[in-house]
Design a protein around this nucleic acid. Structure first.
Length: 938
RNA sequence: GCUUGGGUGGUGGAACUGGUAGACACGCGGGACUUAAAAUCCCGUGAGCCGUAACGCUCGUGUGGGUUCGAUUCCCAUCCCAAGUACCA
């Protein structure tokens, strides 16, 4: 028996024990209630696990262990989201295959995770980049490709049911989610189509479909960049210009599920703020589509969506997105030059720049006029980059009196600002978006109120066939193609139709997985095709057809992984029916709030889709969600000159004298903000050996900022050193003690010794360090000791049930301090204390469990202590006595005393009358077992 | 810009439903033990004021208002910080 707290040995020994005895292996066990605790799985970055990762994992592990103590069958798995950009970046720099990098990183992650003593069931580990896993990601893609969304049944259905409908009734009046511009046909038109034509027609309905999307294109790198890789309008890698470009991309019709994604929020136990964020992201708005005719153009009309059709008489201009496909056609010769200049300028602006800059107005007149359908007025047509092509119809009507941005635009271009409501105020100073009052200057709706005006206009527009009430979502369909190597291949090949057009076809299900081909370099081809195009010569379907060369996005593999954990080794299905029906859905999901609108929406979307097809039972995949706050890091920066012929970096102190771009630099090659130049050159291949550095005081000083700790910011802090110094139990306790799980906080190691001391204090309740002997005695506990213990039992349970992990630590500290003061070493008390501690500090708990002489085996199969309220009963309550809300003294009264008795006793009290200073209280408020407040008049 | 959070001692934080603000830790100061150090233990620690001391007083939860017997907590306004913003994951 170890009588000293030697955490290194203890932790190693118990980690070995758990692994050998498969202590945490979960199984389908209908005899027990189940509990599924899931962590958002990590991307295995080259920097290893940082101190921010374990925060959520510790919390989920505590819940997993707590639920085991309560008798649940607990599924608590871990895996890796192992496709992604950093491994590909590394491959580009070094030529090493991303699979090798990924494998190495995962090995390191597993080692680190095991060091933390997590109770994961490692037999269920998944990796999204394993062919045995992405086989099923590809399989789900195939189901999406083979499905359409039937708005009648409000669910996804097989494309076969659509074919049947088209054959019988055609698509006129068909309620389906499909491409905006799909041509409506009759059944006979459908039946007259060739097989190829029918196939091409169906592409407009599939949930996975091809569409033009705008991307960040970097001509010099020949590749598409993530917004993350673009800084200040140039590529982060190399500093080259980036422009907005349309490309043919795979997309997913997530908008088909917009309404169900909204409704589903009502049935999940997620933070209200997060639900609100998702609601706003989905952005349901009810409004009207209106078509404006174009002067001198007969074959086209511009469609706009507006939520305020009642303001249509106030339209004084119309704006198209600069990348709208009709821009060239609708520009008059006189305006051609100005328009081209504006369009080229807009290409250099990122979407974020465009929508976030509201103070400056930019735009250009096309020379063309459109006709307002309600009053036949000529309205000038402008281009402006605050309108986005990908959102809505790419056109908006400008109503300056009711919308501030339109108002600014009208002022800037000297356009009229007609008043439309008699309640509008000061519209020569600013816009007034009121819905109050009666309409003026508004033709058919003059004198009406908001509701009646809207109804009148919508029905008039519908009668005329130039408008329609419509529900629109801010959320856009999800772009699914990535021009990258390290992702799932899309299981599609292209075959020419009779008209020469290439159509996408799925490969056979039996041919899954479609594995990534080997390529010579992880870069785009010389003609700008995605990296997989490099394999094109040999990598062909049936030896003749080109495969899809783009790969799937990072979110594909992470949108269904919780099902794979249920049955990770299954080769015939993504998971067996038996496993899915037992585990059903995730009971507790813990991960970063930065996933609020990305991963969590995509996952909900795929889950609903799988449910529609009958593969899974639950509409929502995660019943309870907790977002752990990010542990923030301290990043370092170097400053690269923007317009230097030679690659040059300037030190932080002198950077203001130059045009610079700030680039993150790995904090591990920076000491006290001073950069290690040699290491820096080696770390990046875009820094040539002869790169120049402008120093201050003979050194290169980096800038710094507190921001998110993440691989992409090169500011990762590693937990290994802390474990070596204090042990995993200390780190676990400390990370929980830092503050509320949900709260954002910068990492600070300073007070970790307090958590370590706490564990040592626990140890000293059991052992006498000096005498090397056990102190545990088998005598009955005193009422005082039981009160201390049961106070802790109640609070630990209450706090864990509301996921307040930090206050549990305080509670345990108080309990241990109190027991120490009572010199309590009673076995019956310590036994329960150790169980309370075990979810937080499992290694020391196992060791002390043995020291108590408990039977061989793990404390994880013990039972959580039962709280007994009788030990806490008190006869008196100490009432704070306050005067006008300020507490001056306390008085004890029996808990059974009535408010009237207390009031009388208080007023009769000597000390109280001293504070009254002869005044008569106007009122006395007694809140039983809380407070007494004596109100004195002024 | 928009969406969602956050702001309490020197520091991390506690105060769960409007009821004694600062629990529990860190740090700091003082002391005990020790030849010394480590470890451990004890005392003090929001700011200011009065006083030899005890007793006590005033202020105090980003800022300014409001509601209430009573506000860190609810409402309005405002400032600052963070995250997300659709190809980082």
């Amino acid at each position: 028996m170890r009588t000293e707290y030697q955490f290194r040995e203890i932790e190693k020994a118990w980690q070995g024990f758990w692994e050998t005895n498969k202590t945490f292996q979960a199984q389908v066990n209908p005899a027990k209630p189940k509990y599924y605790v899931l962590d958002m799985f990590p991307y295995p970055s080259g920097a290893g696990l940082h101190v921010g990762h374990p925060l959520g994992y510790i919390a989920s592990d505590i819940m997993a262990r707590y639920k085991r103590l309560q008798g649940y069958e607990v599924l608590h798995p871990m895996g890796f989201d192992s496709f992604g950009l950093p491994a590909e970046q590394y491959a580009i720099q070094t030529g090493q295959h991303p699979a090798i990098t990924t494998e190495q990183n995962i090995t390191r992650y597993i080692e680190q995770l095991k060091n933390m003593g997590f109770s994961f069931d490692w037999s269920r580990e998944v990796r999204t980049s394993d062919a045995s896993y992405y086989k099923w990601t590809q399989w789900i893609f195939m189901q999406l490709f083979n499905s359409w969304y039937n708005q009648e049944s409000d669910k996804a259905e097989s494309i076969e049911t659509l074919k049947a409908i088209l054959g019988a009734k055609g698509s006129i009046g068909l309620k389906a989610v499909c491409d905006e511009d799909v041509h409506r046909i009759s059944a006979s038109e459908w039946n007259a189509m060739s097989a190829d034509e029918q196939y091409a027609y169906l592409l407009s309905f599939r949930l996975a479909y091809l569409d033009d999307s705008v991307v960040n294109w970097c001509p010099q790198l020949g590749t598409v960049l993530a917004n993350d890789e673009v800084k200040d309008g140039v590529s982060e890698r190399g500093g080259y210009p980036v422009e907005q470009k349309k490309m043919r991309q795979w997309s997913m019709r997530i908008t088909a599920y917009a309404d169900r994604l909204l409704r589903g929020l009502e049935e999940v136990d997620w933070a209200d703020s997060l639900k609100e964020q998702q609601r706003n992201w989905i952005g349901k708005s009810v409004g009207t589509d209106v078509e404006f005719a174009i002067e001198n153009v007969s074959d086209k009309k511009i469609k706009v969506f507006t939520t305020r059709v009642d303001t249509i008489y106030g339209v004084s201009f119309m704006v198209l997105a600069p990348e709208h496909e009709w821009v060239e056609e609708l520009t008059t010769p006189a305006q051609k030059e100005a328009v081209e200049e504006y369009v080229n300028w807009a290409k250099t602006r990122s979407e974020l720049d465009r929508v976030s800059e509201v103070k400056t107005v930019s735009g250009v007149f096309t020379g063309t006029y459109v006709i307002n359908p309600v009053n036949q007025e000529r309205v000038p047509l402008f281009l402006a980059d605050y309108v986005l092509a990908g959102y809505g119809t790419g056109a908006v009507m400008g109503v300056p009196s009711g919308d501030q941005r339109d108002w600014n635009f009208a002022k800037h271009f000297d356009l009229p600002i007609p008043a439309i409501l008699d309640a509008q105020k000061d519209i020569d100073i600013q816009a007034d978006n009121t819905k109050e009052g009666k309409y003026i200057n508004s033709g058919m709706i003059n004198g009406m109120g908001y509701k009646q005006a809207t109804e009148t206009l919508v029905s008039w527009l519908e009668e005329q066939g130039i408008g329609k009430g419509k529900v629109q979502y801010r959320m856009r369909n999800a772009v699914f193609s990535r021009q990258r190597y390290w992702g799932e291949p899309v299981p599609v090949y292209f075959k020419p139709a009779a008209n020469g057009e290439y159509l996408p076809y799925l490969i056979e299900e039996s041919e899954l997985p479609l594995e990534l081909p080997k390529i010579d370099k992880y870069l785009p081809t010389e003609t700008g095709e995605p990296p997989l195009g490099r394999a094109a010569a040999e990598w062909k379907y049936q030896g003749q057809y080109d495969y899809e060369w783009s790969t799937m996005p990072g979110w594909a593999g992470s949108s269904w992984y919780w099902y794979r954990y249920m049955d990770a080794l299954n080769e015939g299905e993504f998971a067996s029916k038996e496993a899915i029906n037992y585990w059903k859905a995730v009971d507790l999901y813990i991960g970063g709030s930065e996933h609020a609108t990305g991963h969590l929406l995509y996952s909900r979307f795929w889950n609903k889709f799988l449910k529609d097809l009958g593969y899974v039972p639950e509409e929502e995949f995660a019943k309870k969600l907790i977002n752990q706050g990010m542990i923030q890091g301290r990043s370092n920066f170097v400053y690269r000159l923007k317009d230097a012929a030679k690659v040059t970096f300037v030190t932080h102190g002198l950077k203001d004298q130059y045009e610079v771009a700030a680039l993150h630099v790995d904090v591990n090659i920076v000491e006290n903000d001073v950069l290690d130049i040699e290491a820096f050159k080696k770390s990046r291949n875009d820094v040539p050996a002869d790169a120049e550095f402008i120093f201050e005081d003979g050194k290169y000083v980096c800038g710094w900022e507190v921001e998110k700790m993440s691989k992409s910011k090169f500011n990762v802090v590693n937990p290994d050193d802390l474990i070596a110094k204090y042990g995993a139990d200390t780190l676990r306790v400390y990370e929980m003690f830092l503050g509320p799980l949900e709260q954002f906080k910068p990492w600070n190691t300073n007070s970790i010794s307090g958590s370590h001391n706490f564990l040592r204090k626990v140890w000293r309740l059991f052992f006498d360090d000096q005498a090397n002997t056990s102190k545990v005695v088998d005598t009955p506990a005193t009422p005082e000791e039981l009160k201390v213990l049961h106070t802790a039992i109640r609070k630990v349970q209450d706090d864990l049930d509301r996921f307040s992990f930090n206050t549990v630590v305080s509670t345990l500290m108080i309990c241990v301090n109190d027991l120490g003061a009572l010199k309590c070493s009673k076995k019956s008390v310590l036994r329960e204390l150790v169980i309370l501690l075990s979810p937080y500090a499992p290694h020391i708990a196992e060791e002390l469990w043995v020291a108590l002489g408990e039977e061989a085996g793990s404390i994880s199969s013990a039972k959580f202590p039962a709280f007994n309220a009788t030990f806490l009963e008190e006869n008196d309550f100490n009432y704070p006595i306050s005067f006008n809300g300020k507490v001056k003294l306390t008085l004890a009264f029996p808990v059974t005393a009535t408010p009237a008795e207390i009031e009388a006793a208080v007023l009769a009290n000597d000390q109280v009358s001293k504070h009254l200073e002869g005044k008569t209280p106007s009122k006395v408020i007694v809140v039983p077992k809380r407070i007494v407040n004596i109100v004195l008049g002024k």
